[in-house]
């Protein structure tokens, strides 16, 4: 994974809740300095993948229509973006659920609620760990 050693810039966040998107924008753009693209559904995320070309994808688990795991499966099927590391952000953190997400190919799970002031540090840590 040669991309992982380069600097992380473009992050895509898929999250249906407007408030969480807004706070994540603050946490990742204003605090973290990343280039963030937010999508309010898995479908929109799939549509915007090619144009935005994210280096990392953050996924909420519980979303209407297409939930986080289905979105990740669909991303893996695109081929082009199958290797983009994905992280689940969820309030559900039972061990068996974490295992389920990791088996889908997620690289990490960040439990919700997250702290907006330290979220980008956490993500950078994970990114550096991927190198």
């Amino acid at each position: 994974m040669s991309d992982a050693v380069s600097a992380l810039q473009r992050i895509m966040l898929v999250e249906d809740e407007e408030d969480i998107r807004a706070v994540a924008e603050l946490a990742l753009e204003a605090v973290g300095g990343f280039n963030l693209r937010t999508c309010d559904s898995g479908r929109k995320a799939l549509e915007q993948l090619a144009e935005f070309s994210p280096q990392l994808i953050l996924l909420d688990v519980m979303m209407p229509e297409m939930d986080g795991p289905s979105t990740l499966r669909a991303i893996k099927e695109t081929g082009d973006f199958a290797d983009v590391p994905a992280i689940f952000m969820t309030a559900k953190v039972q061990p068996e659920e974490v295992n389920e997400y990791l088996s889908l190919g997620a690289v990490a799970v960040i439990p919700k609620p997250f702290d907006p002031m330290t979220l980008s540090d956490r993500i950078r840590e994970i990114w550096e760990g991927l190198a």
Binding site: D19, I20, V23, A91, K92, K112, P113, P116
Partner: peptide
């Protein structure tokens, strides 16, 4: 579930 996930933030 939503509250559990967001309130802390």
């Amino acid at each position: 579930h939503r509250l559990a996930g967001s309130a802390g933030t």
